[in-house]
Simulated assay, not measured.
Amino acid sequence: MALINTKIRPFTAQAYKQGKFIEVTEADVLGKWAVFFFYPADFTFVCPTELGDVADHYADLQSRGVEVFSVSTDTHFTHKAWHDSSDTIGKIQYTMIGDPAGVVTNNFEVMREGQGLADRATFIVDPDGIIQAMEITAEGIGRDATDLLRKIKAAQYVRSHPGEVCPAAWKEGEETLAPSLDLVGKI
Score class of each variant (00 low, 15 high):
T95W: 07
M1A: 13
D182Y: 13
H161T: 02
E26G: 03
W170A: 07
C166Q: 08
D60S: 11
T137M: 04
A118H: 06
D56W: 11
I130E: 08
T122V: 14
D144P: 12
Q62C: 09
I131R: 07
E109S: 10
A168T: 12
A2C: 12
A145G: 11
M96R: 01
F37I: 09
W170N: 06
V46K: 01
G98S: 09
M1C: 12
A34I: 08
C47Y: 01
N106H: 14
L148K: 12
R150P: 05
S86M: 03
D42S: 03
C47I: 05
I124S: 06
D56P: 10
A55C: 01
E26F: 00
T73M: 15
T146R: 15
P167Q: 02
A13N: 03
V158M: 13
D42G: 02
G31Q: 10
R9Q: 15
W170M: 05
A178W: 09
T137W: 07
P127H: 05
G129P: 06
C166R: 02
P167M: 06
Q62M: 14
L30M: 13
V125G: 12
F108V: 06
K171N: 11
F37P: 06
T146P: 08
Y94C: 07
D182E: 15
A59S: 15
G116R: 07
C47E: 01
S86G: 02
I141D: 07
A155Q: 09
M96G: 03
C166V: 13
Q62A: 14
E164L: 09
L149H: 12
E67T: 14
K151S: 11
D99R: 09
H76D: 15
E23L: 06
M111Y: 08
A169H: 07
I8R: 03
Q156R: 13
A59C: 12
G98A: 04
A59H: 14
D74A: 02
Y39V: 02
I130A: 06
S63M: 07
F77L: 04
M111D: 11
G142R: 03
S180W: 11
R120G: 03
D147M: 14
I4W: 00
D182K: 15
S63K: 14
D144L: 14
K7P: 03
V110R: 07
Q62P: 08
V184C: 10
G52I: 09
G173F: 01
A145C: 07
A118V: 00
D53G: 04
K151I: 10
V165R: 14
I8M: 06
T122Y: 09
G65F: 09
T95R: 04
K17Y: 06
V125P: 10
G142C: 08
